[in-house]
Structure formats: structure tokens, C-alpha cells
Nucleic acid binder design. Structure first.
Length: 214
DNA sequence: CGGTTGTAGGGTCAAGTATT
DNA sequence: AATACTTGACCCTACAACCG
């Protein structure tokens, strides 16, 4: 079915992840790595991997450098970060480096399975509670009038508000009674004005300044 | 399905010109 | 000088076609 790589230096957590995957994604094969070097070795030997779960605390990788190295080695392989850290800027940075998701280690087993299924289906997973609360923004004292969100038009803010709710372009088009292509254009403009490269990053930015889109 | 590019219609505003 | 009209630039919105 699926072939996944779990890269974590804690054997107990690694084994727990393997057990959860075995139970929830029956028929899947899980490979293990206790270090970044081992993970790079595994991905070099297996070009049929569907997903890699990468811990940020690997002994031979500092912070997100492990993700960067993995992405550089196998750009085709989707990588999801599994970490105890839940700072929003770290998540944003991981997404910038090409991660397809971010799963906190505190995630319940069932939620973890839903997240993995979502990611394997080609979607991006982010924990909703982090998107709502998260860490303070990089410039907490920056006045709202200088926030890039204020440069958005009313319609663009309306579209962004629906994006924050997790709605697809198709759903947003239905809600606003406009064509889907129109929504896409708005999204393009939003990404350009917010200086981000994906809708997920725009959503994270918007959720930091929730009042800025209302 | 998400995103980009090109095109078109409509609204706004400043600048120029004509009229009173 | 004051007012009204015209013009052109610019922006927003919407859409189709296309790509990955």
C-alpha cells in the first residue's frame, strides 16, 4: 500500500509511530532511521517511498537543516515534520523548506492517522490548534497598519477569511457566488501581497493577525 | 486541484480643455 | 476664476486557457 520512513532518534517514539501506522494504514511498510545520515541512506536505497516523517531533534541535524538536506537529496519525496516544538515561525520555516505538513508529538493517535491519510492523499496537514493560537508573531508590537494584510482589498480579505477556514477554491467560489477561476486570481494576488509562496503560508500569516481579515 | 498569465469590463482620479 | 466635460492612466474584479 504505502511505504513510509520514520526518522527519529528515540526508539520508543519510533516504535510507537510504526505501531500506529501499522494499525491505521494496514498493508503499509514502515522503514526506520535513528539519525539523519541513516535516513539519507534509506531514501537513497528506496526510490519508492511515499512519505518521510522527520523528527527535528535528530542528533546529526541542527533544527531544520535535516529537512533541508533531505529535501535536497530527494526533492520528490514528501516530508512531514514530527516535532515537540510548536512555534509558528518554525512551522512556517519548515513549510518554506518544502515540508508538506507539521505534526506535533502531542497529537492523539487517531488525529495522527487522519493527518497521515490527508498527507498521503496529497494534501497539507497543519494542527488546527496551532493555527488558532500558536506563538506570538515575530513583531508583536508592529502596528496593524503596517501589516501586509492591510494592503488587501475587501474582496481579497473575504477570500482569505474563507481560506483560513480551510475551504478549497471551489468551496470559496460557491460561498461567494463567483467563478472558481476568480477565486484563484484573488489567491494569487493575496500570495503576492503577503509575500508568501503557498496558501498554507498565507493562512498561517492570516491566523497570526486574525483581526486583520475581519 | 492549486497556481500563473493574459485579456476585458468597469470604477476612480488627476490633468487638460472648453465653456460660462 | 469657476464649472463642466473629456481623456488617459491605474486599479480591481472576473474570466478563460494553460501548466505542473
Amino acid at each position: 500500500m504505502y511505504r513510509l520512513l520514520v526518522a527519529d532518534d528515540h526508539p520508543l517514539f519510533r516504535e510507537a509511530m510504526v505501531a500506529v501506522i501499522a494499525r491505521g494504514l494496514s498493508g503499509s511498510e514502515t522503514l526506520e532511521a535513528a539519525s539523519l545520515a541513516a535516513a539519507l541512506e534509506v531514501v537513497a536505497q528506496h526510490d519508492d517511498l511515499d512519505l518521510a516523517l522527520l523528527d527535528l531533534g535528530l542528533p546529526d541535524a541542527e533544527g531544520l537543516s535535516g529537512l533541508a538536506q533531505l529535501r535536497q537529496a530527494v526533492p520528490w519525496l514528501p516530508v512531514v515534520i514530527v516535532s515537540a516544538e510548536q512555534h509558528k515561525h518554525t512551522i512556517l520555516e519548515a513549510l518554506n523548506l518544502g515540508a508538506v505538513g507539521y505534526i506535533p508529538k502531542s497529537t492523539p493517535r487517531d488525529t495522527l492517522l487522519v493527518a497521515l491519510q490527508q498527507i498521503l492523499a496529497g494534501q497539507v496537514y497543519l494542527p488546527p490548534d496551532i493555527m488558532r493560537t500558536g506563538s506570538p508573531p515575530a513583531s508583536p508590537t508592529a502596528p496593524l497598519k503596517h501589516h501586509p494584510l492591510t494592503s488587501l482589498t475587501d474582496k481579497q480579505r473575504e477570500v482569505l477569511a474563507h481560506m483560513v477556514k480551510g475551504e478549497s477554491n471551489k468551496m470559496i467560489a460557491y460561498r461567494l457566488d463567483i467563478a472558481e477561476t476568480t477565486v484563484k486570481t484573488h489567491v494569487s494576488a493575496i500570495l503576492r501581497k503577503l509575500r508568501v509562496s503557498s496558501r498554507v503560508q498565507a493562512i498561517l500569516l492570516a491566523s497570526e493577525r486574525d483581526d486583520g481579515i475581519r
